[in-house]
Nucleic acid binder design. Structure first.
Lengths: 147, 147
DNA sequence: ATAAATGTAATTATAATAGTTACATATGAT
DNA sequence: ATCATATGTAACTATTATAATTACATTTAT
């Protein structure tokens, strides 16, 4: 059975962080090591990484010397690639929590607003398509230099 | 003292819904009536409407015959106008919940990701600038016709 | 064999959001 | 004047969403 829950922003961040960490390592990296570096939990790491693996963004190996590693040069991947791999939605659907309330089911308001949220989420994805992992890495090193 | 909390998506929806309701009414409308129509709470309505009032999108009057009413024709307002009036952020900042964790404060990762979120939120706003209240009203009536 | 890794279900803990209560203030109607 | 009824907003509670943890099955190099 495969885990198919909704994927939220923090998992997107985790993925970006992990991919950059992997790109700096020559060896495979375990979920424990990644978790320590990202200040999160190994299980959260594995949940995210297993999704990246399914889409072919990373390789995972089990056993004593196992862990995660990159398949190709990740620098050219865009943030959109990552978001799509995870199924992240930055603007969720739903009219607050009253999705099934009688006020909306007949007014059409819900579906209209949902299409607005879809359009916004698409706009987010287009924005992410402009940003490559490489760009994030460059900005980080720039920041470090300033410090 | 003025309420300055974070404004979330559901409050944006509430505002859109309320403005459309007001545009169909000739009289002033109380928060009770609006709440009933939007399936929410009168206090939530008042919190949102008081923000719209501060920006001049609606008028509010107290007393026996009081309530909310439109100042000008709201049809030409865009959804961006409403979002800005409320201070709604559709893509929040912050790297999950670990904003102050030691993993980010020195890496620059947090500020880099925050600028990504800012860019996404701006993209959302630009998308909303393309949509007028009038468009939402038209779509609703179209939907009603189909039913 | 076994130690150590991933994969994921199930549970618990925490944070974000929505709803409610309470009350101060204002105002039109009588 | 007073009274019923409206907004404005703080403080609290309830609910939902998200993150972290526990547990364990599976895999694999040593």
């Amino acid at each position: 059975m495969i885990w198919e829950g909704p994927v939220v922003k923090s998992e997107f961040c985790l993925a970006v962080h992990a991919l950059i960490y992997l790109s700096r390592s020559n060896d495979t990296v375990s979920s424990d090591e990644l978790a320590k570096n990202i200040c999160t939990n190994p299980v959260c790491v594995r949940k995210v990484m297993s999704r990246l693996k399914r889409v072919g963004l990373v390789a995972a190996s089990k056993g004593n010397t196992g862990g995660y590693s990159l398949i190709a040069d990740v620098s050219q991947y865009t943030l959109k690639d990552i978001a799509e791999a995870l199924g992240t939605r930055f603007v969720t659907k739903g009219y607050g929590k009253d999705i099934d309330s009688p006020c909306f089911e007949n007014s059409g308001m819900l579906s209209v607003m949902n299409s607005v949220f879809d359009a916004m989420n698409t706009a987010c994805m287009e924005q992410l398509a402009k940003i490559k992992i490489k760009d994030i890495k460059n900005q980080i090193s720039n920041n470090l230099r300033e410090v």
